[in-house]
Amino acid sequence: MTKDDVVAVIVENILDNLDDVEEGEIDTSKSMKDYGANSLDIIEVVSTSMRELKIKIPRTELADIDTIDSLADKFLEYVNK
């Protein structure tokens, strides 16, 4: 699985969980908060993405991640383990 595949999963879940966000407008260098996500929305996106990617990362390891891009990097690290 490539990073683009991981990003695609995250983006799909962002579109599923956040209103008023269009596919083309998501910039992965930004945070989900920039698209109106609250902390509960972020948990939803992260958890559903992990379930789809069949990985499990402790929340404590995700605390400092602040962009969609760095979330994808962290996910990829676990996908390739």
């Binding site: 948990i43 958890s47 559903t48 992990m50 379930r51 499990k56 402790p58 929340r59 404590t60 390891e61």
Partner: peptide, 10 residues
């Protein structure tokens, strides 16, 4: 020990 209730909601 890195896991908590925060990790099993789904």
């Amino acid at each position: 020990l890195k896991f908590s209730f925060a990790d099993f909601f789904f």
